Simulated scan of single mutants.
Amino acid sequence: MVFWFPLLFWLAALVVAILMLARGPRPITLAAIVAQLLRWILVFPAGLMGLWAFSGHVFVPDQVAASIGWAPSPFQFEVGMANLGIGMAALIGAFLGSPGFRAAVGVMMLGFLGGAGVGHLIQIGETGNMAAGNAGPILYTDFATPLAVLGLLLIQRLLGPVPKA
């Protein structure tokens, strides 16, 4: 089941963004699409996924380690705390954050999650670790989520003032 969570959080972000656009003002502009996608990516794959990862690494570390193909480690607590920070910051950024705050969240996610993604690739290459928590959807979302946040922020900056979302 752990395998599906990254995909489900991304699906939720896309569905909610589409629903918000469908019930929003017309015409639907590129700026509105970007604003909704950014908000709901910050909520689901960044915010709630971060809180979910925190809870797993801190409260059920043996299960999480097994899903990644690792032995349990005291470092999982630290990974969990980093995920807690990312999750809380992403949720704040979704509703209260300025573009600069959101960019800081995106940079932190790129450093931590992107680094984790590189670690997954190293594990695959060096040990053949194809466990679902190492080579499954989390591998792709570790790169996709921060890149989506930063890419959408760049598009938003190029489009001009941020519409109310």
Rank of each mutant, 00 (worst) to 15 (best):
V2C: 09
W4K: 15
W4N: 15
P6E: 02
W10D: 05
A12C: 09
L14N: 01
L14K: 03
I18Y: 04
L21I: 10
R23L: 13
R26G: 13
P27G: 14
I28K: 09
T29E: 04
L30T: 15
A31H: 04
V34Q: 00
A35F: 00
R39H: 08
W40F: 08
W40A: 03
V43K: 00
V43Q: 01
A46Y: 00
G50P: 03
L51G: 04
F54Q: 11
V58Q: 07
F59P: 08
V60N: 03
V60R: 04
P61R: 06
P61S: 09
D62E: 07
D62P: 04
Q63Y: 07
A66W: 01
S67W: 04
I68S: 00
I68E: 00
G69H: 05
G69D: 06
P72K: 07
P72S: 07
V79K: 05
G80F: 01
N83E: 06
N83K: 06
A89S: 09
A89I: 06
A89N: 02
A90H: 00
G93S: 02
L96I: 11
G100E: 02
F101E: 00
F101T: 02
A103E: 00
M108R: 10
M108L: 14
L110E: 02
L110A: 10
L110M: 13
L113M: 14
L121K: 05
I122E: 14
I122W: 10
G125I: 03
T127P: 09
G128E: 12
N129M: 13
N134W: 02
G136S: 07
P137T: 14
Y140G: 07
D142L: 09
F143K: 05
F143H: 05
A144R: 05
A148N: 07
V149C: 02
G151I: 14
L152T: 08
L154K: 13
L154V: 12
I155R: 11
I155S: 10
I155P: 03
Q156K: 12
R157N: 14
L158C: 15
L159N: 11
L159I: 15
G160P: 08
P161G: 11
V162A: 12
K164A: 15
